[in-house]
Design a binder for these strands. Structure first.
Lengths: 212, 212
DNA sequence: TTGATTTTGTTACTTTTTTCACAAATCAGC
DNA sequence: GCTGATTTGTGAAAAAAGTAACAAAATCAA
């Protein structure tokens, strides 16, 4: 099998597989079967084989998957076998926290530009990056080769940030602001709000208590 | 309709509806139809009606939904029409960032205990909370009425943190550590890792470039 | 080399989720 | 109070995702 439409859930699971394979690899394991990996991820083994089948044949029948090879294959499939340069728009509390968070670079997402439209912030230096006026995004995106935009503005300014980013030729957007944004069709947007998971947890706890 | 099994995707969408309704409410809108809300969320209007139908009848035929009422109804459905007291385990960089992040309290998730097993950290004060030895979780969970555990340890210590939390009688866990954890059946766990969204974005960008 | 055993890749089947379509309810104007 | 215009709630249909089952490939022992 190869390509066609790939379910969103598959992409999410690939990220999980990657996480677990990484931990296993660090523990010195070399080979794993879909069955064992499935146990570790708490999914169905067929599910794993099917998810991987969208991208190619990475296993060896009768043997299983070579962990390092599989990690490489999944990274390639997701497009994270390379660096991505990012623009961060909105240098507030959250923005600053992300700029300081060096996990970004470790995972291959390198924030190379920090932008804000507040005159008081422009010119200041945050984690080694000078804060630049959002209106200058276009030039910077071109000059620095930025491909991903990270929105960390307050919700009411998220749409404007998105507009600047789109206009500047950015290729995709991660929106941390608690607001939906509208962008032209081809540009993918992902929303991040970990309170959604808190809500889901509150729901599940409440549900099980209601049953009891 | 009422209760039965509710899709995970429905819960996620309810959180999105809530976000958008909140923003609309602040803008002074009072009533909205499933059609308009659907446009704002970029989902199918039937989807919205069906999602809500799992929990009750909140709309008025021929009219639409009263926004404030709907917000209340969704919050009740999710179980976030109340406060939740939380225990945070693992006072590293991420843990400290979350402790400082006052959005938690604003959204009704109040972190009332900070725990770590590192002797150097125990006794120190972070954002007004004294860091307590993880082994004392049980007493504190009882005395402070903590219901949700937030794991922010390094991945290799996530399972132990989970074990302490489960033993202490916690009702649910949010795991920020990049590792899967095993807990007894009835206790719900939600995983938070925003790099998954970065991966999804990288994938979509790569895909569309491949097509071009 | 053959046969037993393992485990993948893939097709067929099952279940779940989403979308469609329409009756039931509401409201405004006459 | 009736008529027409809306818009919900919901059962039926369609689409999508997940699971099971098995042939094909690989390994190993005899």
């Amino acid at each position: 099998m190869k390509s066609e439409h790939i379910p969103k859930a598959t992409i999410e699971r690939l990220a999980v597989y990657l996480q677990i394979l990484g931990n296993l690899g660090r523990d010195g394991v070399n080979i794993i079967s879909s069955d064992k990996l499935a146990q570790a991820c708490k999914v169905n083994p067929s599910q794993i084989r099917k998810d991987l089948a969208y991208f190619g044949e990475f296993g060896v029948r009768g043997v299983g998957y070579y962990i390092q090879e599989l990690i490489t294959a999944i990274k390639q499939s997701l497009g994270i076998d390379r660096h991505w340069y990012c623009a961060l728009v909105g240098v507030g509390n959250l923005g600053r926290a992300l700029l300081r968070h060096n996990e970004f670079a470790r995972r291959g997402f390198i924030i190379r530009g920090a932008f804000d439209c507040d005159q008081d912030k422009i010119g200041k230096v945050e984690s080694g990056l000078e804060v630049i006026c959002s209106k200058r995004l276009k030039t910077k995106v071109r000059d620095l080769g930025l491909e991903i935009g990270i929105i960390t503005t307050p919700p009411e300014r998220a749409q404007r940030a998105a507009d600047y980013l789109v206009e500047s030729g950015i290729k995709g957007i991660i929106n941390f602001a608690p607001a939906r944004i509208a962008v032209p069709e081809p540009i993918p947007v992902e929303y991040v709000d970990y309170f959604h998971q808190f809500y889901a947890l509150a729901f599940h706890i409440t549900l099980s208590q209601h049953r009891a």
